[in-house]
Simulated assay, not measured.
Amino acid sequence: MGLAAGVGHFFQSIIEVIQGFLGAVVNFFQWIFNSIIGVFQAFIGFVEGTLGFAIHNFFILGTVAAAVFAYLLYSQRQGTTPVSRTIKNKSN
């Protein structure tokens, strides 16, 4: 009975080694797959954050640009900028 049990344990250990090797291969491919998914998720998060930043600042920069444009129009009509004075002098 001892010899048969030893042979049975030997074959059982060989099967466990093969299962362990196959498990390592599967885990390796899962790790690669999860790494690729993680890179795409990080990229999407980066794009989302960048677009959010750009959209929020677009409205702020647009407001500042509109205020500067309005000031330039006002100052040209009043004749207080050097550009408006040269244009008026050339037309006279």
Rank of each mutant, 00 (worst) to 15 (best):
Gly2Leu: 12
Ala5Phe: 04
Val7Pro: 04
Val7Ile: 15
His9Met: 13
Phe10Asn: 04
Phe10Thr: 07
Phe11Ala: 00
Ser13Cys: 03
Ile14Arg: 13
Ile15Asn: 07
Ile15Asp: 14
Glu16Asn: 14
Ile18His: 03
Ile18Asn: 06
Gln19Tyr: 02
Gly20Trp: 01
Leu22Cys: 11
Leu22Ile: 07
Ala24Thr: 13
Phe29Asp: 03
Ile32Gly: 01
Ile32Cys: 07
Ile32Tyr: 02
Phe33Trp: 06
Gly38Lys: 03
Val39Asn: 07
Val39Trp: 09
Phe40His: 09
Ala42Gln: 07
Phe43Asn: 05
Phe43His: 07
Ile44Val: 13
Phe46Gly: 10
Val47Thr: 09
Val47Asn: 11
Thr50Gly: 12
Thr50Glu: 11
Thr50Ala: 14
Gly52Glu: 06
Phe53Asn: 14
Ala54Glu: 06
Ile55Gly: 04
Phe59Ser: 08
Gly62Phe: 12
Val64Gly: 02
Val68Glu: 09
Val68Asn: 08
Ala70Leu: 08
Ala70Cys: 02
Leu72Thr: 02
Ser75Ala: 15
Arg77Phe: 13
Gln78Gly: 00
Gly79Thr: 00
Gly79Leu: 02
Thr81Arg: 01
Ser84Asp: 12
Thr86Pro: 00
Lys88Thr: 05
Asn89Glu: 13
Asn89Cys: 01
Lys90Cys: 10
Lys90Asn: 15
Ser91Pro: 00
Ser91Ala: 08
